[in-house]
Computed example of a mutant assay.
Amino acid sequence: MKTNPQVYAMIVAAGRGSRFGTSIPKQYLALNGQTLLQHSVARLAGSRYIDDCLLVIAADDKTAQKLDFALPIHYTFGGAERWQSVRAGLEAIIDAGANDTDLVLIHDAARPAVPHNDIDNVITAAMCEPYGAILATPVADTLKQAKSNSTLCPNDNVYRYAARTIDRTNIWQAQTPQVFRVRQLRKVLSYVAARDLSITDEASAFEHLNLPIRLVSGSRQNIKLTYPDDAILIAAILEAQQ
């Protein structure tokens, strides 16, 4: 009799990384001798719960299958939106034999420095939850709500001004991995699709249905490569972690 759910790992790597501003998808940026995608797979390989990984890639991706990875890799094609890529990956995992109560771990290719302990911590938390758990960190910086005002600016320029400070007491910054029950993730993604909702992570799909997802405190080293300056920080973190 199975005592723990099986964990299926998925890395979403179908995006173009438009905010990063390069001609190649950012998951293929080389840092410290490997691409971000290779680093991210290697992080999952350090978990005692993960034996292989599904990569969700763009249909025209010619790079991923030429790389060497630290885990056995399976592939499927993603969609235009992140949630569509996750849904495609989930269906591939179900086709591979996942049960309703098994867990799907979803990680960003652009988070190559997540500590190994954080991966196992969010998995063990999700095993105790009916819906799932995500890594996140309490927001430490002061947050400002902005307003625009062009009346004081020359040449019709629009500038933004601080309108108020937002109470950050209960504000957390979401990270990945995010880990969910198979059946419940399939349910909320179907809800998103039926209503054409805009979501930025899988946990927000659960929030639309008021389904609780546990927050697991993660490391601030687990930053996401979004802008060029982030690459400097991530390279330094990867070097320090060796």
Rank of each mutant, 00 (worst) to 15 (best):
F180P: 05
I213P: 11
G79M: 05
K224H: 14
V158W: 04
A125I: 00
L189G: 06
N4F: 14
V12R: 01
S190G: 15
V122S: 11
F69E: 00
I94V: 13
V179N: 04
L29V: 08
V104Q: 03
V179H: 00
A88H: 08
D230S: 12
D60L: 04
L71S: 03
F69G: 04
A146H: 11
R48L: 06
D108F: 09
W83D: 13
L36I: 00
D120T: 13
A146I: 12
L143C: 01
L233M: 03
P25K: 02
K2P: 14
N117C: 12
A162I: 13
H208G: 07
L105N: 08
A88N: 06
N99P: 04
R195A: 04
A92L: 10
P115Y: 11
E129V: 03
R183P: 01
A236I: 10
G15P: 05
H39P: 10
N121K: 14
L233A: 08
L189Q: 02
I123M: 06
Q221W: 04
S150C: 05
I11A: 00
T22W: 07
G46D: 15
T169M: 14
A205T: 12
Y8V: 02
R43F: 03
T142P: 00
D52L: 02
G218V: 10
A240E: 15
T200Q: 11
D51A: 02
A235N: 14
L105F: 05
M1G: 09
W172V: 11
P154N: 00
E207G: 12
D60T: 05
N157K: 07
G21K: 04
S217N: 07
W83A: 09
D167F: 00
P212T: 06
L105Q: 01
A163G: 02
I11W: 03
T142Q: 07
A193Q: 11
P228M: 00
I24Y: 12
V192T: 04
T101L: 09
A110R: 04
L211N: 08
L103I: 11
I123C: 11
V188F: 06
H116T: 15
Q175D: 09
T142R: 08
Q38E: 07
D118Q: 10
F206C: 14
N32W: 01
S190V: 07
R183T: 07
S18K: 15
D120G: 13
L189F: 15
L54G: 04
V182K: 02
N210D: 08
A64K: 03
D51T: 05
D120P: 10
A109G: 12
V104E: 08
I94K: 10
T169R: 12
I123Y: 07
L71V: 03
I232Y: 11
A174Q: 09
K147Y: 11
I134Y: 06
Q27F: 03
H39R: 13
V192K: 03
V86R: 03
A235L: 13
A133G: 05
A235S: 15
A146N: 12
V41K: 13
E202A: 09
T137Y: 02
L37H: 01
Y161Q: 05
A174G: 14
A59T: 10
H74Q: 15
R168I: 09
I106D: 01
C128R: 12
N210Q: 09
A96H: 06
D51V: 00
